[in-house]
């Protein structure tokens, strides 16, 4: 189609520009985090771990990290359990209002997050739970349910119903079937869904900024600092977040790749 060499070259240039536009900002932040200078100049004038020392020596950042981790663990596990059960019920069951329920579960993905933040702020304030830990974890769970449902919905649909039926007909209870038959087969998808929900919670900033009250998470603290002044410690935080994301995605790729489900999970939405 793009048969002339010129048009082909032009397309390649445009494509490479797009990839550079997407990735270069991330690639620049990493060396900047090792800069000894306070000013954000690129390339950095030397090498130092100054900003990492500043980060790990700051008890407020450390506390934000532990809060983020606890909230992410609790909410991602809750989203994983509730979302997987629901994905199973939606794929295998046929009850009135099924489409409505599925649409409702997916809607945090479509409703602008700022609106979820405001609705939660107003109603948590109304019931006196604004700034509460329960409210924060519940909000993160709701926001990450769609990610779990997307992955687990595909996984359950592709799992052969007859395998479950065989287990039942041999007298296995429902819980035995799930734990001994389904889980081992769906484990890669469960892992991927959990990782996605964990990242989703760990990076959540908008709702957290509105409703977390005295709780500081890493993104909330980062956001507040970015608005006030640009402190190079942020480059170290950013680099760590990029590293964690790369590792998590690599783990997902590895696990799903082995199960041969990678393409499916990436392309099907």
């Amino acid at each position: 189609m793009t048969s002339t060499p010129w048009s082909r070259r032009l397309l390649a240039a445009a494509g490479i520009f797009g990839l550079v536009f997407l990735t270069v900002p991330l690639l620049i932040v990493i060396p900047m985090s090792f800069s000894p200078a306070r000013a954000l100049t690129f390339p950095p004038p030397g090498f130092s771990l100054r900003w990492y020392q500043a980060l790990f020596g700051d008890p407020r950042w450390m506390e934000a990290m532990s809060t983020s981790t606890i909230v992410a663990v609790l909410s991602s596990v809750a989203a994983l359990v509730l979302g997987s059960l629901a994905a199973y019920g939606l794929r295998r069951g046929s009850f009135a209002g099924r489409d409505w329920a599925e649409g409702n579960f997916m809607s945090p993905l479509i409703v602008p997050t700022i609106i979820v933040a405001i609705a939660l702020y107003l109603s948590l304030a109304k019931v006196g739970l604004l700034g509460s830990f329960v409210g924060l974890v519940a909000a993160h769970t709701v926001l990450n349910v769609p990610l779990v449902m997307m992955v687990m919905g595909v996984a359950v649909r592709d799992f052969d119903l007859r395998i479950e039926q065989v287990a039942w007909s041999l007298g296995a209870s429902w819980s035995y079937t799930v734990i001994k038959v389904m889980l081992p087969n769906l484990a890669p998808s469960v892992f991927a869904a959990w990782i996605f929900a964990f990242i989703g919670s760990f990076d959540e900033v908008i709702v957290t900024s509105f409703i977390a009250g005295k709780y500081e998470t890493v993104p909330k603290k980062m956001f507040n600092e970015l608005i006030l002044e640009v402190n190079p410690t942020i480059t170290a935080v950013a680099t760590l977040l990029i590293a964690v994301t790369v590792l998590a995605l690599a783990a997902v790729t590895l696990v799903l790749g082995r199960a041969g489900k990678l393409g499916q999970t990436l392309v099907e939405r």
Partner: peptide, 20 residues
């Protein structure tokens, strides 16, 4: 290279532009 930035925190991607 397209999927990775998609999953990196929006704060990091926004912050990177201050640097660039």
């Amino acid at each position: 290279l397209v999927v990775l930035p998609f999953w990196v925190s929006i704060l990091v991607r926004t912050y990177a532009w201050i640097v660039v």
